[in-house]
Amino acid sequence: MMVIKNKRIRDIMRYVIPCVLIPLLVALGATVFSAKRHLLISMGVAILAVLLFFAGFERKKTGSRRLVIVSVLTALCIAGRFIPLFKPVTALTIIAGMYLGGEAGFLVGALAAVLSNFYFGQGPWTAFQMLGWGMIGFIAGLMGGLLKRHKALLMIYGVLSGVIYSFVMDIWTVMWYDGGLNWQLYMASVVAALPHTALYSISNFAFLWFLAKPFGEKLERVRIKYGI
């Protein structure tokens, strides 16, 4: 049907989206459109960024074992979202990024967001959740070596990613509601979301504290045993 079979089209997508489409959207947003359109632009950028990533994923030759491990971790994330109050999604995404690289981290985060939302409620926020969780995993992959060596740094990253994720999602909530970014409304929604933000950060901390090492050991063991 609309499979992007052609390798060249996918390659073109990989260059056109970041170099042309995203700057064009942002420039249009700054000049042509009125305030209400910020939402449209930010949503467009989020969707394009995720598409860009998926286009790159198809191009690469990933071994089937790696592919399966990514899907296993994503499924664990989704199952973990059913745990009441404490959500291990971010922690698992960070662990995936740390041990399997940035690309795997992005995939685990983004896919967990879109798939679990089929159970928890799909909405216009899905694109932002995908980008948010995906980026958390991607950055964890970039800093993988550092995070593995220093546990303190890992904890700080976990807590910070919870807080920043929450703040960014609040920006989006306010923009959706108000059209523009009203600071008073933003502060109000940040305060209203404080319990959630705290819970996020605490569960990131707790899950990373308890899971990072044993989980990493298990991943390393599988990696050595099967040579991935």
Partner: peptide
């Protein structure tokens, strides 16, 4: 999703199968 990338569709179908299996 398969329209965007067949490999992605494979990844998705495996993930969707794993969720109930893990349960």
């Amino acid at each position: 999703f398969g329209g965007i990338s067949p490999r992605l569709a494979l990844l998705l179908s495996m993930t969707l199968r794993y969720v109930p299996l893990f349960g």
